[in-house]
Design a binder for these strands. Sequence first.
DNA 1: CCCTTTCCTTGAATAGTTCAAGATTGGGTT
DNA 2: AACCCAATCTTGAACTATTCAAGGAAAGGG
Lengths: 141, 141
Amino acid sequence: MRSSADFELMLRGAELRVTRPRLAVLAAVHDHPHADTDSIIGAVRRELPEVSHQAVYDVLRALTTTGLVRRIQPSGSVARYEARVGDNHHHVVCRSCGSIADVDCAVGHVPCLTASNDQGFSIDEAEVVYWGMCPACSAPS
Amino acid sequence: MRSSADFELMLRGAELRVTRPRLAVLAAVHDHPHADTDSIIGAVRRELPEVSHQAVYDVLRALTTTGLVRRIQPSGSVARYEARVGDNHHHVVCRSCGSIADVDCAVGHVPCLTASNDQGFSIDEAEVVYWGMCPACSAPS
DNA sequence: CCCTTTCCTTGAATAGTTCAAGATTGGGTT
DNA sequence: AACCCAATCTTGAACTATTCAAGGAAAGGG
């Protein structure tokens, strides 16, 4: 758990103005890993009830662009955000309930995978999504 | 390029009724790998002008459910479909223009990757998306 | 050839996200 | 401390991809 002062430094480090909506969104993403936009709006409004949804969308975009948060969006899901950035970790997604958990990099380097034939593309990231069933959904009811 | 008779056999093999919309969608997906729904609707209507968009959505869902086509949806993209199924290959996506190309499996087995810590999930598939720039977009203009 | 079930058409609804215009505010400068 | 301007936020509407729902059409087994 980080303090508001930490978030302020992170924003200044990214050359973003320090505003209350931004501090609140940053805190919400840190507190609720893999939360979708709606959940983040809810968390932010617990502290700043008047924040518009558009502001949250704008802030999330700014934070994503500067790399302070990472946006993930498995097929069939809405956009989700997390604060764990820079370590190229991956995700497991439950096919049944959609819950997401972190998985460390399969090999240990960034990027941790190399395409066997890159089709002439210059590749800068390998994103892995593991699909399966979470413990709760695979448990006999 | 497969014939209409092949597509008919594929549908029957999947226990789906053989209809003209389904044959046309199947042909369109085979002819236009990684096409989005709108492109597929366009391709289908070149042959069957009266097909509704809802029919195409329904058919794509049926084909995806039975495994005759595969649905892919990189972050920020609409749903796309391809007919190459069952070999667990992966994709490179251009950050600039969104174009997609196939990449063979990084290791060669299905699933070709194993999560280092699976968080208790039972994993049945590892999906890899390589992000980068396609040859056209990275060329000096 | 008929009947049942599946499929397609038509039309409307929905959710998530973005666009646009104007008001507010952060923070560098005077 | 007051000023200024670009960046940010509010308000409200628009948009797109997709899904829902009800009724008509047609596939294919009997």
